[in-house]
Amino acid sequence: MSDVGGKELRIIGFLCNWCSYGGADAAGVGRFSQPTDLRIIRMPCTGRVDPLFVLKALVSGADGVLVSGCHPRDCHYSEGNYYARRRLEVLKRLLPMLGIHEDRFHYTWVSASEGARWQQVVTRFTERIHELGPMDSLDPELAVCAIRELGGENGQADQPAPASGE
């Protein structure tokens, strides 16, 4: 159950190792309560975040994707987040043309010391995704999804849900 209420949704977070990942950690150490829908993937830098990671997550069943890195001028590698900013802004403006709500994707900057900001970012983004609800299913008949039933029959119902919506 999500803290935001209702069924937990699948949100993927790509976090820069040098800032936001620490920020998320700081939020945890500071015992700031956060929704639990987010699954975090640690990245060396937002400059490593290919916009295709976001798109791949969205077509594969993620309901929202969050990218968070170092504030401009604070990149551990000087300029990774500047490249990321351009790419991610272009991506954000592509989504509506695909029929995907642009709010399903968000990028922001959180430093390692900003635990409170991290809490706000996650809470607000998760709330927004819950307002939008789950992503529309792309392939209800996807072969690899059908086989999940096999797992269910064998008492493995706690497996992760099918990759492309139920």
Binding site: P96, M97, L98, G99, I100, H101, D136
Partner: peptide, 8 residues
Amino acid sequence: LTERFAFW
């Protein structure tokens, strides 16, 4: 958005 998603 729904129409565009269906379009694609």
